[in-house]
Simulated scan of single mutants.
Amino acid sequence: MTSSGITTLPVDRPAAGVGPKALLRGVLRRWPSLVAVALAAFVLADGGTDFPAILTGAALVYLGAAVLGRRSAAWPLFLGAVLLIGVGKVAVVAFGVPVPVTVLMVALGAVGAVYGPARTPAGRAMLIGPSAVAMLGFGAVAVATTMLAPVPAGVIVGLGLLGHAAWDHVHFRRNTVVARSLAEFCGVLDTLLGVAVIVLAVTGALA
């Protein structure tokens, strides 16, 4: 109540940081996740997607960035992996020529795993080591799935993608090896694809 005896009611003010502009900024900050959702939808709509190659390519991006010593190199390396997968698909569809993209990526990873530690300072070589082991591990899983029936192959590669999503999460939290935006993007993409592939395999849609 004021000195004049008139009661004044408090004026409702909009809570700070929850306006349309703040909401838009929050959404835009999550652009890697949004792009990952869109790409996952595109990949799943394409029945001829090479999921083992996607798993191997994700691991190869991390190793390549570690060898180069530049986190910003992760996005160009990712685009290179996408291009390689695309070339392999075009070769099959247009010319009927199968290209072992997964095996080729594993070979590139093996070269990086040997060349990287041998040609870099000891401090950075220690950073390359985990990425090299992860590359060879995920690559081995991916290659193994190419020799299995569709259902077990789908389950295994799906679990592999979920495993790589955990790897993405570790690097996102630590903000190391790759750009944080790439770690967020890859983590969301791997999770969505991993769950989807397992569901498709279990329901027989990959048979």
Rank of each mutant, 00 (worst) to 15 (best):
G17E: 09
L44M: 12
T56K: 00
L68F: 05
T2E: 11
G88I: 09
R13A: 14
H169T: 14
V37W: 15
A132K: 02
P52A: 11
L162W: 07
V43G: 00
T191I: 02
P121K: 09
F42A: 14
A40N: 10
P130Y: 06
V141G: 02
G26H: 01
A118S: 15
G26Q: 02
V141T: 11
D50R: 01
L23T: 13
T120F: 00
A132Y: 09
A59T: 08
R180G: 06
A118K: 06
H164Y: 15
I6W: 07
L23N: 03
A91W: 05
P130R: 09
V197K: 08
A132D: 08
A65Q: 03
W75K: 06
V188S: 03
R13Q: 14
V27Q: 03
G160H: 06
A153Y: 04
L23C: 01
R71Y: 03
P150R: 11
C186N: 11
P121A: 06
A110I: 00
W31Y: 14
R173N: 07
S3Q: 11
P117I: 11
L192K: 06
V90Q: 03
I128G: 02
G47Q: 11
L77W: 14
V87P: 01
T56S: 10
V178R: 00
L104N: 04
P117L: 02
M1Y: 00
R71W: 10
G69P: 07
R30C: 12
V111E: 00
V141I: 15
V18C: 02
A94K: 08
G194Q: 05
A40E: 09
W31G: 03
A125R: 05
T145I: 00
L108V: 15
I85S: 08
D50S: 03
L23A: 13
T7S: 08
P14L: 07
V37I: 14
G17S: 04
V87A: 14
V11T: 15
A134D: 11
V43L: 13
G158R: 01
F51W: 01
L68P: 00
